[in-house]
């Protein structure tokens, strides 16, 4: 087709992205004006590159579940369970504290990584099985499995946090590579891979089609069950990576860490242009939405807003965003 049409198409597809960018700049400007000294300090942005990625991964995971018209309310449970299982493994291998634990060799840490990722994979597979094979509605299935994963974390730890991870593990959460935070590199790498899979592979496009109409997808010969299953496995895997980063950054793992991330992941996914009813999603949109909201909350924290108040503002933001989207669609 002609390039003129392509351009129009690009603009239309990317109005959402452009608006998000505009929003980000606006937040940036507002926060800079409100905290002129603190907000613009490089340290502030640097710390964001460590804190934001875990939430970004959870948001991408949420976006994947929403893409097929589902939702995954168990992502936080999976993240914590993965970290706890790995932590218990390290404590068994190197003792509960002391140099034995901290200096565990790379091979053991790699084994721990494998264990954590496998936990996420299996947890995602259970979700996928329940949703794609048993055909339980995603909300109910993941409410149920979410309880089970949190419950297993409680059973495994007895309640208190597991404190103390190997130094190598912690460097996943707060190390740098060529001056860039490792979590940020992980986020960018994974976001790139997910974006590529979604736009350039048959599997990715199948997910868009399934989200638009699962019935039509069956009649088009798409393996709906398998693709849906795999998307939840990927969701679980992404959640476990988030859990690894979170436990590495804080050097601890607990059954109820990051519970407020659930809402935030939903918000970022929706703000990033994901249609919760399925069929529309954009990794780039989610990443920009993440940046916007992280700038907002860090600015608010610099203004000594409590975490609770930040939660309040996130909630308000979610509602305002959907209201604006609805207004915009109605006018169209």
């Amino acid at each position: 087709m002609t390039s003129g049409l392509d351009l129009r198409r690009f603009v239309r597809r990317d109005t959402n992205i452009l608006q998000l960018l505009g929003l980000t700049v606006l937040i940036f400007a507002a926060m800079s004006a409100l905290n002129p000294e603190k907000f613009l300090r490089p340290y502030n942005f640097e710390s964001l590159t460590f804190v934001a990625p875990e939430l970004g991964l959870l948001s991408i995971a949420m976006m994947l579940a929403m893409l097929t018209g589902g939702i995954d309310l168990s992502v936080i449970g999976i993240a914590n369970l993965s970290a706890i299982v790995a932590g218990l493994f390290f404590h068994a291998a190197g003792g509960a504290r002391g140099p034995g634990l901290i200096n565990l060799p790379a091979t053991t840490v790699a084994a721990g990584l494998t264990i954590a990722l496998t936990t996420g994979l299996l947890a995602g597979a259970v979700n996928g099985l329940l949703i794609a094979r048993v055909r339980i509605t995603p909300i109910l299935a993941t409410i149920g499995t979410g309880q089970v994963y949190v419950g297993l974390s409680l059973v495994l730890t007895g309640g208190p946090a597991i404190v103390g991870f190997p130094a190598l593990w912690d460097s996943i959460g707060n190390g740098t590579l060529a001056g860039v935070a490792v979590p940020l590199l992980l986020l960018l790498g994974i976001a790139g891979v997910v974006a590529l899979v979604l736009t350039r592979t048959a599997f990715g496009i199948d997910l868009f089609l399934i989200g638009t109409s699962a019935k039509a997808a069956i009649f088009a010969g798409i393996r709906v069950g398998r693709a849906t299953f795999l998307s939840y496995v990927a969701t679980g895997l992404l959640a476990s990576v988030a859990g690894i980063i979170l436990s590495g950054r804080t050097n601890a793992a607990k059954s109820d860490y990051g519970t407020s991330y659930l809402l935030q992941a939903v918000l970022i996914a929706v703000l990033g242009g994901t249609n919760p009813a399925g069929g529309r999603a954009s990794v780039l949109g989610v990443v920009i939405a993440l940046v916007a909201l992280m700038l907002l909350s860090s600015g608010l924290q610099l203004m000594r807003f409590s975490n609770f108040l930040v939660d309040f503002i996130w909630g308000a933001f979610l509602l305002i965003v959907i209201a604006i989207n609805a207004l915009r669609n109605r006018r169209r």
């Binding site: 939903v266 918000l267 929706v270 919760p276 807003f305 609770f308 930040v310 308000a316 979610l318």
Partner: peptide
């Protein structure tokens, strides 16, 4: 679901914050 996730967070955040 999305609406009530939002209002829930909003109200609890307001209460505690």
């Amino acid at each position: 679901l999305i609406v009530t996730l939002g209002t829930g967070a909003l109200v609890r955040g307001f209460l505690l914050g």
